[in-house]
């Protein structure tokens, strides 16, 4: 349960750092190896059920595929147009195929990273930790939590409004304008009721003595310990090692050129 127990803020910073580093990479090997590493952590170490994982992961495959082919077709002028690979019965410059592959793998590596975070972190704890470790203002933190609490209610309400409007005889929209009006008719009651809910909640919270001051105690306390730093440094180190490895093997590429 090591990954579950890493301080949520540190975990988030780790993910963000990794994303920033990965965004500098334009070869397919580095993100590919990194994805394998993250999968190992998620399924092997954090013991996330792989069936569940696949369910969350699969939508990104569509994005990745879209990225791949459009990057192939709409790529910038290649520097070395002679080397070619044949795909789907057409010749493409090797360079372009590599870049396209890299970018779609990049999407998948981002997805694996955020899933690693989402599947091992209690989201409320993350917000609480932001407040305790990252000086996030309490007014924002508790305001966000109060709003987040409404999400199931708002989902139910959207469903109710839909059927309530059907009873009124609202037809299925045929033109774009009708479509927009219908969207507006759904959105307005939803927005109006959520604004009222928000106001009432604010009053209730202030009635419990909430002022937004940082001077408060915490029921759930989050701390940063050595293990959290080990996680952060370890993750960044692995990514750097992967980058160095593919550099040594001659794969690593910055944008528009090799290192």
């Amino acid at each position: 349960m090591f990954i579950h127990n890493v301080n949520p803020s540190i975990k988030a910073i780790t993910i963000i750092l990794s994303v920033l580093l990965l965004a500098l990479v334009f070869d397919p090997i580095t993100p590919f190896l990194f994805i394998i590493w993250i999968w190992f952590l998620t399924i092997g170490v954090a013991k996330i059920n792989w069936k569940k994982y696949l369910l969350y992961f699969s939508p990104f495959l569509i994005f990745a595929v879209g990225m791949f082919w459009s990057n192939l077709i709409f790529a910038n002028e290649p520097i070395n147009p002679n080397a070619a690979i044949t795909l789907f019965g057409r010749d493409f410059p090797t360079e372009d195929v590599n870049t396209a592959l890299s970018l779609s793998l990049r999407i998948l590596s981002f997805a694996s990273l955020s899933l690693l975070f989402l599947l091992t972190t209690n989201i409320v704890h993350f917000i609480l930790s932001l407040m305790q470790q990252c000086k996030f203002p309490p007014k924002l933190a508790y305001g966000i939590l109060a709003g987040y609490r409404f999400s199931p209610m708002i989902k139910d309400e959207l469903f109710l409004i839909r059927s309530a409007h059907r009873v009124r005889g609202v037809n299925r929209a045929k033109t774009l304008k009708e479509g927009f009006n219908q969207y507006k008719r759904f959105a307005v009651p939803l927005l109006a009721s959520s604004i009222r809910k928000a106001e009432r909640t604010a009053i209730a919270m202030e009635s419990k003595g909430f002022t937004g001051s940082r001077d408060r105690t915490f029921y759930r306390q989050f701390t940063v310990t050595t293990k959290d730093w080990i996680f952060l440094l370890g993750m960044v180190a692995v990514l750097l090692i992967l980058i160095i490895m593919s550099w040594q093997l001659g794969y690593f590429k910055w944008y528009n050129g090799e290192l």
């Binding site: 909640t201 919270m205 002022t211 408060r216 105690t217 029921y219």
Partner: peptide, 16 residues
């Protein structure tokens, strides 16, 4: 309420 669980909600006032 602004928290998700019963204990957290009662704690919210105590924290304030």
């Amino acid at each position: 309420f602004c928290m998700l669980t019963v204990a957290d909600e009662v704690a919210f006032g105590l924290e304030n």
